[in-house]
Amino acid sequence: MSLTFLGFDVAGKGYGINLAAVREVTLPMPPVTVPLAPKFVRGLVNLRGELVVLVDMGFWLWGKPSEITQHSRILLLNPSCSDATGLLVDGLREARTFHSSDMLVSDNNEDSTPLARILQGLCKWDDGVITLVDAGKFGQILEKAIDAKSDDSTESKTL
């Protein structure tokens, strides 16, 4: 079985996401901060009237906010993966098709690190290796993370 992945960069490292999970790639636009949201939520962006949650992949994966440059892009996910969610990445590579035998599939998704929870596998890309992320898990993981955050904030606001 073959799958086409779109390559992208975050914090100097290469990643790949199933092309079918990406609805649109767009230039970054200034987000509006959402108070109380977890830090990896950079804010809300208005994409032609549709409000999209912008997930900062730099913060999600490495705990460090991404710097928005001319190479930065937003990967808008298909609603089947996550409702109105865009991933802010540092740069884009091309799309490549891999045979399943070329991929080293991960079976360690229960690990607690952010990367491990969305890790789909590894794949060779030019001279290096890229990490394949499972877009299908984003929605669920985001909801859980935000739910937990909102519980925390409610607790801390108790007077």
Binding site: L36, A37, L44, L51, V53, I146, D147, S150
Partner: peptide, 9 residues
């Protein structure tokens, strides 16, 4: 977006 509705505010 659905994920933000959990915030409650």
């Amino acid at each position: 977006p659905r994920v933000l509705r959990y915030l409650g505010a």
